[in-house]
Simulated assay, not measured.
Amino acid sequence: MKAMNRWKAIGLVLTGAASYGLLSSFVKLGYQQGFTAEEVTGSQVFFGFIGLWLLSLFQLRKMKSVTRPVIVKLVLSGTFTGLTGYFYYHSLQSLDASFAVLLLFQFTWMGLLLDWVLERRVPNRYQWIAVVMILAGTVLSSGILSGSLTRINASGIGLGLLAACCYTLFIYFSGRVATHLPALIRTTWMITGAALIVLTLMPPRFLWNGALGEGLWLWGILLSVLGMIVPSYLFAKGAPHMATGLAAVLGSVELPVVIVCSAVLLKETTTPMQWIGIMVILLGIAVSERKVRVRTASTS
């Protein structure tokens, strides 16, 4: 792949991960308005599903040309992005948020491991160093060291790790399934799968309980853009041009964005240790690319 194309792909994945980071603060704002996790999550995938299908009408001819086996693969792949949120939100019910985030960010090394097992792509030393740095930065940024944990149990840990596994698989399939199709079409079918699994696990009671009329529709549209449409599209467009392990490492930029947005939008207090953690994560992302740059320079 040409260097320019590679850096463009990296930019797309970084932007998609940053969009996920923005999502967290707006979800909290929705909770402050009195809406439940089921209402917020359900409306997010519902409006994401509707929005993407409306956008896909402009490519209706290409949409009709997609074969049934490909549709099935895309829909099944999309269930992983829906399950990520489902498992993560449920882990928060029995774990401290700082510990739940730490569990979710295990996707950084899971992506490298998946590449190693399925693609026979052995991680280089810079990638392992990057993972160690990112996990260390995550510990610092999550605030887990600032006080003792108050909520922790085995089921919550299991749910947090399941969320990490599902996020890893979402990244993997974003870069592997039906990559010959336009990103919008792939994203539409994948979010269809996400909507099917989430609305099955959490029935859309918000459609008839009056929550939409109380303002949930606004949060649903905003969250669908930040959490479903934009990141899924950008991952579908950028992930096919890089290894799953690199995409997972780049995805760790989500946490610094979460902390910055929490400080700016929610006025939450951030500690110097958290800012140090952010810097460590960003340095880890830079380290993960080191060998690629050296190799490119030596072959040019």
Rank of each mutant, 00 (worst) to 15 (best):
A3R: 15
A9S: 13
I10D: 11
I10R: 15
G11D: 02
G21K: 01
L22M: 13
S25E: 03
F26W: 08
Y31T: 06
G34H: 06
G34W: 02
E39K: 11
E39A: 07
V40K: 08
T41C: 00
Q44I: 00
F46M: 04
I50K: 11
L60C: 12
K64T: 08
S65R: 09
R68F: 13
P69A: 01
V72E: 07
K73P: 02
L76E: 03
L76Q: 10
S77H: 09
G85I: 00
F87P: 07
H90T: 08
S91N: 05
A97W: 08
S98I: 07
S98P: 08
F99I: 03
Q106C: 00
M110A: 03
L112P: 10
D115Q: 06
D115E: 04
V117L: 08
E119T: 07
V122R: 15
N124R: 14
R125L: 00
V131N: 09
V131H: 15
I134W: 14
L135Q: 13
A136T: 15
V139Y: 11
V139T: 12
L140D: 11
L140M: 08
S142K: 07
S142N: 01
I144D: 01
S146Q: 10
G147F: 00
S148G: 15
A154F: 10
S155E: 01
S155R: 13
C165N: 08
C166S: 11
Y167H: 04
Y167D: 04
T168L: 04
I171R: 08
Y172I: 05
F173R: 00
T179P: 04
H180N: 07
L184Y: 14
R186T: 04
W189A: 03
M190K: 13
A194K: 10
A194E: 03
V198C: 07
L199H: 13
T200S: 09
R205E: 09
W208I: 11
N209P: 09
N209T: 00
L212P: 09
L216I: 05
L222A: 09
L222T: 14
V225M: 10
G227L: 02
P231E: 06
Y233F: 13
Y233Q: 04
Y233W: 14
L234S: 13
F235N: 09
P240S: 08
P240R: 09
A243N: 12
A247D: 05
L250M: 11
E254L: 03
P256W: 03
V257E: 01
V258G: 00
L265K: 15
L266N: 07
T270Y: 02
P272Y: 00
M279D: 11
M279F: 15
L282Y: 12
G284H: 08
G284Y: 06
I285K: 14
I285G: 12
V287T: 12
R290T: 10
R290F: 10
K291V: 02
V292F: 13
S300I: 00
